[in-house]
Design a binder for these strands. Sequence first.
DNA 1: GATGAATGAGTATTCATTCAT
DNA 2: TATGAATGAATACTCATTCAT
Lengths: 212, 212, 212, 212
Amino acid sequence: MGIQERKERERERRRQQIIVAAKRVFSEKGFNKATMEDIAKEAELSPGTLYLYFKNKDELYASLSLRILQYLNIRLDHVAKQEGISTEEKIEALKEAMFDVYDFDPLVTINMFHLQSSETLRNLSPELLDEIKGLSRSSLGTISDIFQEGISNGIFIDKHPVALADILWSLFSGVVLWEESKKIIDGGKDYMKQTLETAFDIFGRGISKSVA
Amino acid sequence: MGIQERKERERERRRQQIIVAAKRVFSEKGFNKATMEDIAKEAELSPGTLYLYFKNKDELYASLSLRILQYLNIRLDHVAKQEGISTEEKIEALKEAMFDVYDFDPLVTINMFHLQSSETLRNLSPELLDEIKGLSRSSLGTISDIFQEGISNGIFIDKHPVALADILWSLFSGVVLWEESKKIIDGGKDYMKQTLETAFDIFGRGISKSVA
Amino acid sequence: MGIQERKERERERRRQQIIVAAKRVFSEKGFNKATMEDIAKEAELSPGTLYLYFKNKDELYASLSLRILQYLNIRLDHVAKQEGISTEEKIEALKEAMFDVYDFDPLVTINMFHLQSSETLRNLSPELLDEIKGLSRSSLGTISDIFQEGISNGIFIDKHPVALADILWSLFSGVVLWEESKKIIDGGKDYMKQTLETAFDIFGRGISKSVA
Amino acid sequence: MGIQERKERERERRRQQIIVAAKRVFSEKGFNKATMEDIAKEAELSPGTLYLYFKNKDELYASLSLRILQYLNIRLDHVAKQEGISTEEKIEALKEAMFDVYDFDPLVTINMFHLQSSETLRNLSPELLDEIKGLSRSSLGTISDIFQEGISNGIFIDKHPVALADILWSLFSGVVLWEESKKIIDGGKDYMKQTLETAFDIFGRGISKSVA
DNA sequence: GATGAATGAGTATTCATTCAT
DNA sequence: TATGAATGAATACTCATTCAT
């Protein structure tokens, strides 16, 4: 048992070591230009070893996104389940959670959306695909629930909460993506914070206040 | 003169023939899995001929996005330059223009954002890159101008127009991207119309009205 | 007849135009990197036209060498057939002839030896190959004859004239080749003249004189 | 240590295995017609493996010549450094060394001069190019030194030793090249020995003796 | 004859993956 | 487990050559 567990822990440590290396290499070179050997070198392992922990390059890549999605999910769940706080506070917490996810790993957040291109998804194992689907659905559901609460309490405009959640989600991914392209096209700044801030402003009662 | 012109037209016809074929193949297989031979076959041409019209695979790919950007730009310009219409009508026209661009070519719209990944941009010729940059900047500028007008007339919330334009742009790309992933993950529906509709609702005075 | 002849002359003019262009392009880019289109452009003709005058790229290439060989042959024949001049004068004339051939077209002289690589020779038409063989044999024969005369008159060392001719020929090609490589390796100077001069010095009685 | 060394030796063995195969294939088909796959097959390896040992086709090709140059250099150095032998013996040794180099690998000796065409040289890595340059210079220098000794001792004609070395070098390459073409054109014999023999005869005092 | 657009066979090179050690 | 040498399938791109006009 102890041995079994220790082995499992050691195995997980290695996986993380590889994921961290992969993140660095994918970030720097992009998916296509990053080779398994690059990643192996960065992880100070041999190419063969990577395959003891990940079925293939696609799954290694997908695991990066999975990590972000898991983190997002945990943060959202935490926000949703907080008892005894006002809806306003909950919304504020949601906003913060999304900032944090982006902060946690800006480049992989972009990768997450690259992942969603049909090209990559097609090569994943059904199990991994299911996990990604589940986490995405769950995140979206949680955000919808918070929005529903905001609507019920008259803090948010009375639109279907799933539509609002969709917009936030789209905005999030869109901002992330667009920011990256800005970096390249215009030399860019860090728009993420201010853009999401403005978005929430508009979403919430803030807008009506400012209009009033 | 006549001959010169006819040749030019014939050449343009071929380019379009190739672009149409490329669009189909890229849509079906994604950028990496689509081979130049696939595209050649789809266009009923030989691989070598593709290179008479496009410098390489990246530029062929980028030209798909260029087409969308050009269309978007034309539509936006048209909206911006309309005289004798109210600001409300102008905003409505902007909304319609963005719908149409998406309708014009949903899959290539996705490509446009894939294009903006640094990986792809690095391989383009400076001329093509400049054209893409210019069109992107111009589109964003035009949207900002319309928003400025909306703000000045009290129709839109008083935020910096560039920030609003950024949000719309992000939303647009995010929605598009996300919708695609939804198609894959959930079997998807056509969220585009209702999502953008809601977004504009929220952006404009509509929100304060509905709240009031 | 007049028409026939004029046509023939026109045809020959075109051939020369192409050969001159080919020489320039081959010299600049080397055989492999030079494309038929490059040559066509240089000749201000279309690629297809080249094939009306030369069966293929190899034969076009070979025709450059043929031209040099023909020139060499003419010069050597002229030297050999001069009546009423002393053997010493004949040898001097031979030396000058070889200088001139090199001057006539230094780079193509190199090509001539590249041509002789089995790779290229294999692709030539039998007729062209025969012509090259014949000219080479004839040139070597003529040189041998002059050397024979030199030996008979005690001007040259008493070795088999064919061996001497071989040496001169080898020296000639070797020098040319080596000079070219020197240009690349050391930044090179024009060694050709002085080297051949020295060689003849050594070959002839000059050496014994200088020793004496 | 032992392992490191064994690996290094194994690696060197593979390199030689590839070089030997490449030599066969290049000899048979020439540079352009020989494909990397041909060479891989001949070496009983996969194409990919070739690239673990040689950066590209050009460098593999160049390495053949490098081998000859290294051998030549070693032989020449050995001749130059021999103490306690007369200048005549040294010259005899030089002659033998050059015979041996040719014997060692007649076909690659030809390649060496093909290598020196600017076309090929341009694609080599600076390191390899430096090595080739260095070896060529060194060989020529050593030959010059021996000739200088011969001149000082009155065995050779009093010409600049570098000029004499150049001539020998040119003669050597020219003979080799020409002999090869003779093989093709005339069915040829082995002129190398007798030609070099004659050349040295002429170079040395032999000539004045025979004249006397 | 002249054109030049179209062809399509041909190949160097890469890199994810495997497997003997 | 870990290694890393070897694999070999896969593909963008070139360019000599053709042929309808």
